[in-house]
Amino acid sequence: MNLNWQFIIDSLPLYRQAAWATLKLGFWGILISLVIGLICSIALYLKLKGLKTIVKIYIELSRNTPLLIQLFFLYFGLTKLGITLSENTCAIIGLSFLGGSYMAEAFRSGLEAVSRSQIESGLSIGLSQAQLVRYVIFPQAFSVSMPSVAANCIFLLKETSIVGAIAVVDLMNVTKDLIGMYYQTFESLLMLVAAYLIIILPLSMLLTWLERRVRYAEFGN
């Protein structure tokens, strides 16, 4: 099998640019998802009236519709209502909309895993509500949530591969263009796979390391 090395070398700058786009998209998507998830999980955990219902509706809506359709709605649908957002903004909103609910569920499972008796134990040494959250509830909840949070990060990064559908110039989009223009299908796809691996593998390893650290105290190795 002969690879067209010249083509690969020539395309590298394009891939580098697209990889940055994917990374940036993933970064903001994950960050905003974490914030949304945290807020939603706290609303659910504290059973805040009103807010709880809204959060539940949001979670069901977000988890039970495909990201592609959410993106189409944001990009092509909203513009009919007079709200026109750039493709990058739509992609970040779409990703955060999806990721927020997954993160919310991950955090919620962690919060709910903190037993009533642990809270009482904290109260019994005189901790205030804020101290209880900071020193007892959050650390324990986080070590339980960590594996799902990590999985969600990877999941979101992979999901970025469909934003090309709304014209974001990401890795997948660049690859499709190159295939269309030069018919170098194998080379293009090979570079696509490599690019995702280069992005996701280190992140995955970092998260695994972090997970082990966070969970060491409670669960050992």
């Binding site: 008796s117 019994s124 040494i125 005189g126 650390p139 070590s143 105290a217």
Partner: peptide, 29 residues
């Protein structure tokens, strides 16, 4: 919060904080 500092309680299932070392558990309060 004030009263509980003067009334110590020990539970049936220990209820140490699992994410803290022994000494951290003790000095937290």
């Amino acid at each position: 919060q004030e009263v509980r500092q003067q009334i110590g309680m020990v539970f049936q299932n220990y209820e140490l904080f699992p994410h803290m070392t022994v000494i951290e558990n003790i000095i937290l309060g």
